[in-house]
Structures are given as structure tokens and as C-alpha cells.
Design a protein around this nucleic acid. Structure first.
Lengths: 193, 193
DNA sequence: TTGATTAACTAACATTTGTTAGCAAAGATA
DNA sequence: TATCTTTGCTAACAAATGTTAGTTAATCAA
């Protein structure tokens, strides 16, 4: 069988898994239930994935990649802390709204990863948060942002951003751009000197 | 056996359950694992609870009660929208920081409730959110807050508040009061006209 | 055309799951 | 003292779980 057809099936499984994991939570979805939705037998999964957990791994680390790829572009393009933060927020929101199912898994079900993947995942998250922390510190040092606790500020920013997957509706009132704009305004106005 | 001793045991189970559910997620904690930590056999739970799910129910609805009890006091005491919002935020943070384990279950594991409890739970949550929505609408109408989308604003406020259980540390740098104060400032400055 | 690979199947496995039945001891109530 | 209730136990059950073994048909590369 051609390589691309294989990839298609694997992606199809990942897509359906994302959707079911999001709906019911990773632990509440059995291989047999997943199989029903894909249209194969549970045992057939093992031609594509090593284990149930490896499907979860795929989803979580793929999302991490997305976040990193996007933010790296922002960092290389912008130079001023407040402008970088604005663009970083936009980048983050774009990734979430473009992958709401995967986001739910990324934000809720990562905890079911076993070692060493759990540690690897947490390390990636820490790195990503540090990018934001650095931006904020620079903004404070340059007198653009009010001097608040960095960790506290970063946590609060991520809190408001990371909840968007829960209520974002592609057919709803707000476009991803509008959400990013509103959040940027709310957050930056709260921070600005 | 005396009634109060019964209540003690039930509370002890709830406390340990909260802790384990928080640590591993409701679905990942078995009755036998829970039993080990309580120091009884799994079957003995059924002298105190009808089912595993009824432990979850207890935790979720007890937290809902806490949130409502606290906020009602605030509403009866304060009259100005920005002052009410400030006090409401404080109230919310106090409940979370005083019950971090239960909060984690309340925010993450409620989805494993089955009907009709799931609907009942969601209805309570909706009611609670509406209290905040009303405060914000009043603030906007009176020209205290900038006119933004109410739903959007409420969701963003809750996002930042509801994440606190995740990082709050009783032995850490911030007291619940300081957290409430910082969040109030960040949020209200972002909203104020 | 031959041989290897891919992806599906059926059947079964060992565990783990929540839960029930039946029983015993301890304390409360009369 | 006699009875009832509470709370624990052991043993077991039926269902669900992730996974493996073994097989088969189709497709690709030589």
C-alpha cells in the first residue's frame, strides 16, 4: 500500500480519537468505541498505533509542535514587547481555534500520559510558558508594563487564553481574529502602565 | 454507632477521594485504590455511598453550594457594580483556595456525572455565571465598565479565576487575599472605562 | 509472477472494573 | 438482657478493558 494512504488512515484515526476524547475524556473512551466510529475492529488499531496511549501522545505532541512553530515566527518578526505579546496572543488563539478538539485533549488529557512522555510534555509546556514570561519581563523592564509578579501574570494570561477552546464556535459570533483582539485588549489594558 | 462518627467517616472518604481524583482524575481512580488509602475494603464503601459516582456527586455539589453561599453574602452587602465585582472575585478565589482538591474535581471531573445530575450541575453553573453576568451588565449600563460583549467578558473572567486551583500553594508566595487583589486589579483595569 | 508488506479480521487472553450477597462483630437502644 | 443498626469483612460476579495471536486478502516492489 502506498505510504500516503497509510498516513491518511492514521490521520483519520487521530481525528476521530480527538473528537471522542474531547467529548468524553480519554479514559472514558474504549478502543472498541473508537473502533466503531472509525469503522474497523479494535484490534486493527494495532496496525497503526502501538497502544491507546500512543494515540494520545500523537495528539498532545502534535499540538505542542503547532504552538511552537507559530510562536517562533512571531518572535522572529516582531521586536517591541507589547507588539510581540499581542502577536503571541494572536498566534496562540489561532492554534486553539483551528484545533478545538485537539486543544481539549491537549489541555485536559495530557495527564494520562505515562513516563517518560509525561515529563517530556511538561518540559515542553514549561519552555513555551517561558517564552511568554520573557516577553513580559522585557516589557516590565522597559517600563511598558506595570511591574507585577511575572509568574502570576503569565499564569493569568494563559488561563484566559486556554479556556477559549471550551466556548469557541466556528459558526459563532466571533472570528479567531476578533477573539484575539478582544483578549489582547483586555489583557494589555490590565497590564499597561 | 453515634451519628457524628458516621458523618466523620463519610467526610474522611470524601476528603481522600477529592485528593485522589484530583491527582489522577476520577476515571483513573478505582474503588480498590481509594479503599487502600482509606484503610478499608472496596466493598465497605457501599455502607456510606450508593456508588462511586455518588462520591463524585457529593464533591461537585458541595462545591457548588460553597460558591453560592459565599456569593449571596456579597450580593446582599455591596451595591456598586465595581465594588460587587471586586468582592465577588474575592469570594470566588476564597472558595477555590480553601478547597483546591475539591476545586480540581469540580472543574475537571464534573463531566463524568450521569444524568440527571449532569444537567442539574450545568444548570447550577449557568445560574452562578449569570450572577456575574448581571453584575457586569449593570457596570456597563452605568458607564463604569467599557461596553464589551458580556458573555465574552464573563468567560474570560472565569477563565482566569478558575485556573487558580492549579497553581495556588498555601505555603507559597501569595495569600488568597493577595491573589484576589491582583486578579481584581488585572481584570478591572482591563474593563474600566 | 513471486515475495513482502499492509491492514483488516476473528478469537481469545488476563486484568481490572464497579458492585452485590452474606456474614460477623461492635455499639446503641429498648 | 435482648434487639437493631452500623460498619466492616470475604468471596464472588458479570461486564468491560487493553492487548496479543494467528490468519487472510489485497497491494506494492522486484
Amino acid at each position: 500500500m502506498p505510504k500516503d494512504k497509510t498516513i491518511k488512515r492514521k490521520d483519520q484515526i487521530t481525528l476521530i480519537a480527538q473528537n471522542k476524547f474531547r467529548e468524553k475524556g480519554y479514559r472514558a473512551v474504549s478502543m472498541r468505541e473508537l473502533a466503531d466510529h472509525v469503522g474497523i475492529e479494535a484490534a486493527s488499531f494495532y496496525n497503526h498505533f502501538d497502544s491507546k496511549e500512543s494515540i494520545l501522545k500523537e495528539i498532545c505532541f502534535r499540538m505542542a509542535d503547532e504552538f511552537f512553530n507559530r510562536i517562533e515566527i512571531v518572535i522572529n518578526e516582531e521586536k517591541l514587547p507589547d507588539k510581540i505579546l499581542e502577536k503571541a496572543i494572536e498566534s496562540h488563539i489561532k492554534v486553539i481555534t483551528a484545533n478545538t478538539d485537539a486543544s481539549a485533549v491537549f489541555f485536559l488529557d495530557w495527564r494520562y500520559l505515562s513516563e517518560p512522555y509525561l515529563s517530556e510534555f511538561l518540559e515542553l509546556r514549561r519552555k513555551y510558558e517561558n517564552i511568554f514570561r520573557k516577553i513580559i519581563k522585557e516589557g516590565m523592564d522597559k517600563g511598558l508594563f506595570e511591574k507585577l509578579d511575572e509568574t502570576f501574570t503569565v499564569l493569568t494570561i494563559f488561563s484566559s487564553l486556554n479556556w477559549v477552546y471550551e466556548w469557541y464556535d466556528p459558526k459563532g459570533r466571533f472570528t479567531p481574529d476578533q477573539i484575539a483582539e478582544n483578549l489582547s485588549k483586555l489583557i494589555l489594558d490590565g497590564m499597561r502602565k
